[in-house]
Structures are given as structure tokens and as C-alpha cells.
């Protein structure tokens, strides 16, 4: 009960209307606190890992990277590029934040990647987080390609990644699964637990169908327990010119997550 009480207090303080707050974890970033909740329940999992099911969902705006040294995002790009997308992890809560600049990350606060700070709202966009490779849609010309999502708790091979739309499994590698949606978009799921992948190449899958379990697999080495999720689509520029690009996916993820929380994934 001692563990649970602070969360209830936090819940009471959080209120239920949309409002602006200044986060304790640095920066004067605008945080939108939504109306979505999980029913006010806080519980311990079987392994003693705290799963905060009671927290109110909140997210910093698209393009606002945290910490600010982690790169420059697409500020004010609030477009939901894939409005019908299903959230790629089966169950909430889940947490979008940096693996590199979060607690335990290479450039982050000292600690372990399982630190509870990594399992809290608000979400932080990391689509344009600093990387060495080209990303034409990011202000610096370089970026992350997708977003990193931590599942409910820091337990590997427990939480399912699911199909974001109807389509065909077009590729399965040692830690990557690609889904070619009926829309033509390519959805990539990375760091899945290989033995748990239950789809085959060429299999038709339905939106919401299970694909594999989120893990820390990165081809013979380990990363933190998370799903790297990215989406490629082709943009037609006219006059015979087009380009396949990674879509700014953060806003679509926020939208899909809210639908998941509301029971209409």
C-alpha cells in the first residue's frame, strides 16, 4: 500500500481536464494532459515490477525532443499522417521516449534502462533524434527514422507487437519484421524476440493481429527493451520524381494510442 499511495495522490493532483504544466524532469516544455485514463488502478506485476496503470496519458508536442540536446524535431508538424493506424503494441500503457538519452542510455542519465523514469508519461517525440544517417524530413537532415516505444513494463518477450493495418508480412530478419499494409506503406517492427514471431513471410495479417513479442534483440547484441517502430511511404513530387521516406509517425502514434485507451483501437 505504501508503494501505491503516491500514485493515487498523483492521480488526484493530475485532474482530468486538459491543462499546461511544466515538467519536473527539465525544460519548460508544454505538456498536454489529456482526458484518457486507465481506470485509476495501480498494481504490481508478478515479477514485482511496478506497472503504473493509473497514470493519465500525456505527451509533449510533436517536434519537441527531450532532452533538447537530443536533436531538433519537426516543430509544429501536427499532421496525423496515418489516421487509421492501430497502435503497434497490443496493450497500454506504453511509453514513447528516448533510448539513447533516457536513463541508462548511452547519452542519458546514469542508471538502468529499467528505471521507472523511463516508464512514465509524458511521451516525448524522438522521430528526429540525432543519428548519423540522412533523414530528409528532419530539420538537421539527419534523424532516427521512427520512434522507440517501451512496453508496459521492463520485461522482455511479454508484450505483443501487433499489425497496424491489414497487409502482408513482406520480410522477416533476425530482429526485424516488415508489414506491407494494403495502403502500400511499410511498417517496420524492430527488436522483437525472434522465437516469438508467429507470422511467416507472405502471411496475410489483419489489423491488430499479433506479430511477435517486444524485446531487446538487435542481432547478436542487446539493446534496451523496446519496439523501434517506423513507417515508410512514397511521396509523389510530380514530373516523374518521387521519394520513399520515413513518415513523421509521432502524431499518428499519439492518435492511435488515445483510441487504444478509449477502447476503440
Amino acid at each position: 500500500m505504501r508503494k501505491v499511495l503516491p500514485f493515487f495522490i498523483l492521480l488526484l493532483l493530475s485532474g482530468c481536464a486538459t491543462k499546461t504544466v511544466v515538467p519536473e524532469n527539465g525544460g519548460a516544455e508544454h505538456i498536454e494532459v489529456g482526458d484518457d485514463s486507465f481506470g485509476g488502478e495501480v498494481q504490481d506485476s508478478q515479477n514485482g515490477i511496478i506497472v503504473d496503470k493509473g497514470a493519465k496519458f500525456s505527451s509533449t508536442p510533436a517536434g519537441v525532443l527531450y532532452p533538447s540536446k537530443s536533436g531538433k524535431g519537426r516543430a509544429n508538424d501536427n499532421t496525423i499522417y496515418i489516421p487509421s493506424m492501430r497502435f503497434p503494441i497490443e496493450k497500454a500503457p506504453a511509453y514513447i521516449n528516448s533510448q539513447v538519452y533516457g536513463v541508462g542510455g548511452i547519452n542519458g542519465e546514469k542508471g538502468k534502462s529499467c528505471d521507472k523514469k523511463n516508464y512514465q508519461y509524458p511521451w516525448h517525440d524522438n522521430f528526429c533524434e540525432t543519428r548519423t544517417w540522412g533523414m530528409p524530413m528532419c530539420p538537421s537532415g539527419k534523424g532516427h527514422q521512427g520512434v522507440d516505444v517501451r512496453p508496459m513494463s521492463c520485461e522482455k518477450a511479454k508484450y505483443w507487437a501487433v499489425a497496424t493495418e491489414n497487409g502482408i508480412i513482406s520480410y522477416i530478419g533476425s530482429y526485424t519484421v516488415s508489414l506491407r499494409g494494403d495502403s502500400g506503406r511499410i511498417y517496420r517492427y524492430m527488436h522483437l524476440d525472434s522465437p516469438s514471431v508467429i507470422v511467416k513471410e507472405g502471411a496475410k495479417v489483419k489489423r491488430g493481429e499479433r506479430i511477435g513479442l517486444v524485446s531487446d534483440n538487435m542481432g547478436g547484441t542487446k539493446t534496451s527493451i523496446h519496439l523501434h517502430f517506423d513507417v515508410q511511404q512514397t511521396v509523389n513530387l510530380g514530373n516523374g520524381v518521387s521519394k520513399k521516406v520515413f513518415v513523421q509517425i509521432y502524431t499518428s502514434m499519439v492518435d492511435a494510442y488515445k483510441r487504444l485507451l478509449n477502447g476503440r483501437p
Binding site: M137, G184, Q233, T234, V235, N236, L237, V241, S242, V245
Partner: peptide, 15 residues
């Protein structure tokens, strides 16, 4: 293709 973009926009120029 899933999207179109004016090549004269900032994003269009980048692409």
C-alpha cells in the same frame, strides 16, 4: 505512392 507534395515547399525541396 501514398502522399503528394509540392516540390517548391521546404519539405518538397528536401525530398
Amino acid at each position: 505512392f501514398q502522399d503528394t507534395l509540392n516540390p517548391n515547399t521546404t519539405d518538397g525541396q528536401s525530398l
